[in-house]
Design a protein around this nucleic acid. Structure first.
Lengths: 134, 134
DNA sequence: TATTATCCTACCAAATAAGTAGAGTATTAG
DNA sequence: CTAATACTCTACTTATTTGGTAGGATAATA
């Protein structure tokens, strides 16, 4: 399951995608329109900026905007930035790989099963972009 | 991510699939062979029995066995029994559906995106069975 | 230099995950 | 009938994660 945080992130990005291209949008506006707790959204957008998904501008007239075209930001990258791994097991994760200490991957049947699951899931999530969230 | 509990469940089922068909296998044997904390495994196997994935026999010579052929027990059903929903959003879940209170599903873009993800993921997980876990 | 709006660290409460404890119940052997 | 065996069930504990909040620091603009 996606965390609430990731769901908020995707909703906020949908809003920004709708405004793209255009001037920066303030956190407060997004929070109000999308009904997301303001201070929580602050943290979320900050993380998205650090993940190069958003750019920000400080001071009057500042705010957040997408770092690039909506169709060039995959939903997969957003989930990874906020929730981490998409895979169901650390030992099959492409971006957050972690060896399991109790099995040998070359023979592990769980590994094989969840590699197939990962491939199917990620294939969809990489194709979906924030343009699909408008 | 799968919980540890689900991972243990799948490992235990792999062990039982390997022994299938055959007499009941004791919890203690599975725990030792698969290096799963005994008391924790007790709870897990109990849940799997309640989900009609295992059958049990009490007393001397008792233990657990698969309720049916390994190839007729999908990995999807095991995950649902232990971790619950496979979908990434409650509002697209087939077995654990829950309406989101902040969006209208017929127009919600998140809903559409994660319905596609669900379909791709479940298609694989329904095909995989505990026979694949041997 | 005041105002605006993001940046950043730390904190807190509630929920979930992971595992433990111990008494209860059914089955079988003798 | 009784003792031993092995699952059953409820409750509990502890650690981690989730879902926020608080408040000051920093940078840009007017």
């Amino acid at each position: 399951m996606l965390s609430n945080k990731a769901k908020y992130a995707l909703r906020a990005l949908g809003y920004l995608a709708d405004k793209y291209p255009g001037g920066p949008v303030q956190i407060a506006e997004i929070a109000e329109q999308k009904k997301i707790p303001l201070k929580f959204l602050e943290n979320i957008l900050l993380e998205l900026r650090k993940a190069d998904i958003l750019v920000s501008k400080k001071g009057k007239g500042g705010g957040y905007a997408l770092e690039r075209e909506p169709k060039k930001i995959s939903v997969a990258s957003v989930i990874r930035a906020i929730d981490g791994p998409i895979s169901m097991l650390p030992c099959v994760s492409l971006y957050f790989y972690k060896k399991c200490d109790d099995c040998d991957e070359t023979h592990c049947s769980l590994n094989k099963v969840f590699t197939d699951v990962r491939d199917a899931t990620i294939k969809v999530l990489e194709k979906k972009t924030v343009r699909d969230l408008i």
